[in-house]
Amino acid sequence: MNGSAASNIDLLTEDHLARISDQRHPPRVPRDAASLVLLDRSSDVPRALLGKRGKRHAFMPDLYVFPGGRRDPGDNKTPLAQPLREEVADKLMQRTAARFHRYAARGLAVAAAREMQEEAHLSLTPPEYGGALRPDVSHFRYLARAITPPGQSRRFDTRFFACFCDELGIDPTRIRDSDELHDLSWIPVNAHDSHPLPRITKVILSDLVQALDEDSTLLFGRSVPFYYFRNGRFVREMI
């Protein structure tokens, strides 16, 4: 683990332990969710798209996050213009329950694409399909997985995907704010201190910087960090 990721995890753990004695929310089963870290590599330093959640949100208000949200039942059945690469689909199946099947894995990719369209007005569906949701997820890399700690108002088992704008012909200037995210911004992956981010988002960005340093194309079959809470501490496990 690189040093910046380690320090962010320590801070995240301290934040949670400071609250855990005043835990007010009953135990919740994490819901499957997905986020897409969309990258613009037209500059020397790649930039990631983040937006600010409203102050009235129950979960992570007033913080900048990647577009994303929970997997809806219909996401599993949504047709794809191009599917996930086999090595990405295989990696998504690791460390999952028996009831988690291939359709659920592809549904996570659909959820990430759908949320990007809803929250940033960027479509991952090729033009020939018109206005229908039929995303091309063949360029998605599986970047990380994180489960929200116990005691939160919402809990998610989030899979973070990453891909580059130019791979899908996306114009970075066409982003538009939505009801879910405003002040959408392209933020350098290694310089984000000017924006208030959740601790886990900082950790994911640290992992991303390390991955880009190792290979600027982001290998599809690379090992994936998995973050979860166990016995009072965050765990970082590679899958």
Score class of each variant (00 low, 15 high):
10 D>Y: 12
11 L>Y: 10
15 D>G: 12
18 A>W: 08
21 S>N: 13
22 D>N: 08
22 D>W: 11
25 H>Y: 15
26 P>K: 08
27 P>K: 06
30 P>N: 04
36 L>F: 03
42 S>W: 03
46 P>D: 06
47 R>K: 15
47 R>C: 11
47 R>A: 09
48 A>K: 02
55 K>F: 08
68 G>C: 05
68 G>E: 06
71 R>K: 14
73 P>M: 04
73 P>R: 02
81 A>V: 15
83 P>D: 01
86 E>L: 08
87 E>N: 09
89 A>E: 07
95 R>D: 08
97 A>F: 05
100 F>Q: 06
100 F>H: 08
102 R>Q: 05
111 A>L: 03
118 E>Q: 14
122 L>Y: 00
126 P>S: 12
128 E>I: 14
130 G>I: 01
132 A>R: 11
135 P>L: 13
143 L>Y: 06
145 R>C: 12
146 A>Y: 07
146 A>T: 10
147 I>N: 03
151 G>H: 02
152 Q>T: 12
153 S>Q: 07
157 D>Y: 01
157 D>M: 04
163 C>W: 03
163 C>S: 09
166 D>H: 11
179 D>T: 09
181 L>M: 03
183 D>E: 15
184 L>D: 05
185 S>K: 02
187 I>G: 01
189 V>K: 03
190 N>C: 07
193 D>I: 07
194 S>E: 15
197 L>I: 09
203 V>G: 01
213 D>T: 07
215 D>R: 15
220 F>M: 07
222 R>H: 11
227 Y>P: 00
228 Y>S: 11
232 G>W: 12
233 R>L: 09
234 F>M: 15
234 F>I: 10
235 V>M: 14
235 V>Q: 13
236 R>M: 03
236 R>T: 10
238 M>L: 12
238 M>Q: 14
